[in-house]
Design a binder for these strands. Sequence first.
DNA 1: CCCTGATTCGC
DNA 2: GCGAATCAGG
Length: 171
Amino acid sequence: MGWTEERVGTLKKLWLDGLSASQIAKQLGGGVTRNAVIGKVHRLGLSGRAAPSQPSRPAFRTTRPRPSQPSAPRRIEAAAAPRPAPQQPAPPPPAPMPDLPGTATVLTLGAHMCKWPIGDPTSNEFSFCGRRAGETGPYCVEHARVAYQPQQKKGGRDGASELARSLRRYI
DNA sequence: CCCTGATTCGC
DNA sequence: GCGAATCAGG
């Protein structure tokens, strides 16, 4: 299955919520593996996260030898370069998930109800927004703005701060 | 062995 | 652009 806007939106949301790639892949349903999710995440440019559960950042590229071209000798690059002491800025606090107005479970979620995921999809408290969804999209007007992040290229008004404000309420 | 994300590269 | 294969690591 291809990456529809809805699936991409869900992917973004769940990834920014700190869910693992495999969890996102399960939640998106069949047709996607965790590799697909990770690949898409990288392609979307949001590889970094606020709260990586397992911070594996070797800071140096983990040169992966290519399986193809079998005649090529396997060269293992041992990290010999001295690296300056990296200064880690203050880690951002983890984002708790407040309860939102809608609390529709997957069973009670209707056709025209906002399908914005609320909470951890793997937990029992997971629910959807459930408010009235627009005619065009699966989300309510408020979540639609967050899901379909507009191209904030130009324009006099500051779309970024507006987006950040709307996001802030859910983070 | 389970899991995690990261990367490469053929498609 | 997509994702399987593969990596390094917890």
